[in-house]
Design a binder for these strands. Structure first.
Lengths: 220, 220
DNA sequence: GAATGTGAAGGTTTTCACAGCA
DNA sequence: TGCTGTGAAAACCTTCACATTC
């Protein structure tokens, strides 16, 4: 609409798939594979080659006809698109079950998300060391986030208090939030909020199982 | 295609949204709210009213014109569709960081998924009690799953061993698998496999942040 | 020959808009 | 009047098919 920078809109689903490509490409790179075709890349992710090519063509592609795509170059290009070519400063709010597990989750680190602050409201946890990180009092959330220039906050607190915490996070000027609490949170338009709903996938499985059974039951 | 049972295909995205509706309706029910309109339900999930009505119309709807939908009835109907009107027997394989957190995750229980077996290969963990559940030796995975009629298995093991474990799970006759390992697993067609990729949401946030910045930078 | 890059076709999902009902 | 239920239109996404390039 504004200046024509030649960009078509990248769709939500393309972004999701870029994450998948990135993961596969990282593995291929480690295996010292130099080149991959859209056909093979598609096979890894159960997609069609055309889909892969369309996705990759969004950012001015540089595959070689007759050959395929250069693994390392493609991986780095996707990293840039997704913003994985930098370190993101991440804070965790809540170190119960889930929060605590995520602090130790290597996969985040590997993709450039380094959790270096933890907040909790439990007096027994505050001041203690959690996998090498000091647990701060949630009362100091706003100042803490600001002083440490946190980019992204992960919320892993009970649903009942999640909205209050989000409000503080927003006030602190953080504009990326990943929410694990099973509730829908309100944030201003300029803040990126995404929800991780782990029950959803399980429910999808149970739906498919129930559905599959009825198919099995009705087929001759 | 076969017998016309009057069913239109329910789309993937509708299924995902049913999970969301279910969650909201559970809350509304507890708050003793009897009726909800598509407009309000939509607002809760940042959807359009038309979308909500289309979704609900897939299973012969029974809203009241001029009024809305009966909360409890709708909730129960969605539970039936998603297969949440029963107890699913779930086993956890791997009680490291993530696995351990999920065993204690109340939300699963609440939706009818009861984790009642745990497997691990760590001798220090085998035989011990983990949140009230005995940790079994992964060497006995196949027999254990069979003997206990496990419906769904959650995989939370390192990526390197995940495929071997899936093969065993499939051989044991389990047909629902939720995979947390960051790798693509192969299963036969009749097995439902879903992946939970927690890095993906974080990467989506970082993509949005990078993108948003560039928008901010180019706008007047 | 082998594989990319891409308009165009085809398919699916969402939104619109309004008839119909409490 | 207020809101559902739903065909039809619009938007969006995926696949096809082929010209193009190495």
């Amino acid at each position: 609409m504004a200046a024509d920078d030649g960009k078509k809109k990248i769709s939500e689903s393309t972004i999701q798939r870029l994450s998948l490509y990135y993961r596969v490409l990282s593995i291929l790179e480690k295996e010292n594979i130099k080149t991959i075709s859209s056909k093979e890349l598609a096979k890894h992710e159960k997609l069609t080659p055309a889909q892969v090519r369309k996705d990759l063509s969004f950012f001015g592609s540089f595959g070689t006809r007759g050959l395929g795509y250069p693994v390392t170059e493609l991986k780095n290009r996707i990293a840039t698109i997704l913003g994985l070519d930098r370190e993101w400063k991440v804070a965790m709010v809540g170190v119960g079950n889930i929060g605590s597990a995520l602090v130790g989750y290597k996969e985040f680190q590997r993709h450039g998300f380094s959790i270096n602050m933890i907040f909790d409201n439990d007096q027994r946890k505050i001041g203690s060391n959690h996998k090498g990180i000091l647990v701060s009092d949630i009362a100091n959330l706003k100042e803490g986030l600001r002083e440490n220039n946190i980019d992204i906050v992960i919320i892993a607190v009970p649903a009942t208090v999640a909205q209050y915490i989000v409000d503080d996070i927003v006030e602190a000027g953080v504009s990326g939030i990943l929410n694990f609490a099973p509730i829908n949170l309100k944030v201003p338009e300029n803040v990126i909020l995404r929800n991780e709903n782990m029950s959803m996938e399980l429910e999808h499985i149970s739906f498919s199982l129930v559905n599959r059974e009825s198919i099995t039951a009705t087929k001759e």
